[in-house]
């Protein structure tokens, strides 16, 4: 993982600040950095979004392809996650350097989405046992400044909101064989219901308190962090301790509570923003990359 070196004096400075609810960049312990979301940024995808969270920048593209449903669940489609840690974000990722982090991130995303609550997978089914939609969710890290999980989860939610799956009809020919027919109208498409898709909140334990949306510098001061994925109703779909340290049970309870509160509050503005952008249509102002 991309890391920065922090001296003991800097650590103490950050620690004392967090104790008094004032962080290096002036935020309180439960404040996010400035978030920017832009959808429909890559034309070749079925849905895409770019999220920048301070200096963390991620791009998510969703591609829908027709595949064969898994034999255990013949009437559902599925999602595939891939996180690419390119050397763009930090030179440490060059070669195979980012592979470990990429696997960690994509495995966590699989865990976060591995329940029936998040996404109605049945809506991705075309014909049971034969064809279904497979949504390939590809995440690209453009800039890294801590808190990748939160940025990625927001970007995925935005990209899935933006995803337009073309409408298909199944028609039978004379021999009884089935054929999939794509609608002629390119605007004739179905949307994915993203209401229940969770957002990940990462809480870093610094001293006796915890902060959300830690920068790399703050992350270097914390021994352990807890990531919690929360839906808009406050349901928790995944919890994970990351980092080499340990936490005492009491602080875990506090952290999950904060995580739930912060995560719940994250959804409404995000959805509002996405809806607003959608309604503007082509009139909206394009920001572009790293803008």
């Amino acid at each position: 993982m991309a890391t920065v070196q922090v001296s003991e004096a800097e650590k103490l400075y950050v620690l004392h600040g967090v104790r008094d609810d004032l962080r290096v960049d002036g935020r309180g312990c439960e404040d996010y950095r400035h978030v920017e979301v832009e959808t429909d940024v890559v034309s070749n995808t079925d849905g895409s979004a770019k999220v920048s969270l301070g200096h963390t920048n991620v791009l998510v593209g969703v591609k829908a392809e027709i595949g064969k449903p898994k034999p255990m669940v013949p009437d559902e489609g599925y999602l595939e996650f891939f996180v690419d840690c390119s050397a763009n974000a930090t030179p440490e990722f060059e070669g195979r350097g980012g592979e470990g982090l990429g696997i960690e991130l994509s495995n966590t995303l699989v865990k976060v989405f591995s329940n029936k609550h998040c996404l109605d997978l049945k809506s991705l089914c075309i014909s049971p046992g034969e064809n279904c939609w497979v949504l390939y969710v590809d995440v690209l890290l453009l800039q890294c400044d801590g808190n990748l999980f939160d940025a990625i989860s927001m970007a995925i939610k935005a990209a899935l909101f933006n995803t337009k799956i073309p409408k298909v009809h199944i028609c039978e020919d004379e021999d009884g064989g089935k054929e999939i027919e794509l609608s002629d109208d390119p605007y004739d498409c179905v949307r994915v219901n993203v209401e229940n898709i969770p957002c990940i909140v990462t809480l870093c334990k610094i001293g006796h308190r915890h902060v959300v949306d830690a920068t790399l510098q703050e992350k270097a001061c914390s021994v352990a962090s807890l990531l919690i994925s929360v839906t808009h109703t406050g349901m928790v779909t995944c919890v994970r301790k990351v980092g080499g340290g340990s936490l005492d049970p009491e602080s875990i309870f506090e952290m999950t509570e904060t995580g739930k509160r912060v995560g719940k509050a994250l959804h409404a503005p995000l959805m509002e923003l996405l809806q607003k952008e959608e309604s503007l249509g082509s009139k909206r102002q394009k920001v572009g990359f790293l803008g």
């Binding site: 865990k111 609550h117 807890l226 919890v239 301790k241």
Partner: peptide
């Protein structure tokens, strides 16, 4: 030491149930 060194969860749970489970 009464310290939790690892925690992972999946599924869909309320925070209260999570707390009880922990």
């Amino acid at each position: 030491m009464n310290q939790v060194s690892g925690l992972q969860s999946d599924g869909v749970m309320e925070q209260e149930s999570l707390k009880a489970a922990v």
